[in-house]
Amino acid sequence: MIPLSSQLLNLLAALFLLISFAMLAQRRILSLIHLYACQGLVLSLSALIVAYSTSQSHLYYSMFLNFALKVLIVPWILHRLIHRLNVQWDVETLINIPTIMLLGLALVIFAFNLSLPIVHLAGTINRSTLGIALASVLLSFLMMITRSKAVSQVIGFLALENSLIFAATSITYGMPMMVELGIALDVLVGIFILGVFFFHIRNQFDSLELKHMEKLKDN
């Protein structure tokens, strides 16, 4: 019989994967940011459950950090950014969503198989969710590859970081506090720098489409 906390963690992991797929298929930038905030919420909830059921106190701090950063601050900054850039109603032209979905499915199968031998080595209560975390990492990569707009690529990058933290909590109960603080700071600084970049890109090319950057390589 699986304990209730494990069941809840599995459910949250499934939700995490679901959100990753939703981000892969989402065309609207505003909804993408909302999905990112949801993913952060699921991440901090699962950290909370792990912290409660294993009484690892440092995971509580990690949970608070994740919640503050990924559910409140970063989405707020992104909201402000897209308002200032006036792209909040932008709809991306994604080509062939079914193909991207099938590709994502193949990645999930790959990640699940890859994680099986590692899972047997770990002793954590939520070790079986590693496969899902790995799958989300690959899905975020796929999202960054398939997008052509700068903002959605950045959100893909942030989702990648979310999945990495999720993988870390699932296999080792999180990284040391210093590392986690460092990553959190990196994300925050990264967002600021990328925000400045958005304005530069738009000033230079009059659009946030990254395909215009190909012009740069000729000179």
Partner: peptide, 16 residues
């Protein structure tokens, strides 16, 4: 998308 979700369901059943 519906098909993909259903396949994901089967996969997560085996994983979790």
């Amino acid at each position: 998308t519906a098909f993909m979700l259903a396949v994901l369901g089967t996969l997560t059943h085996f994983l979790l």
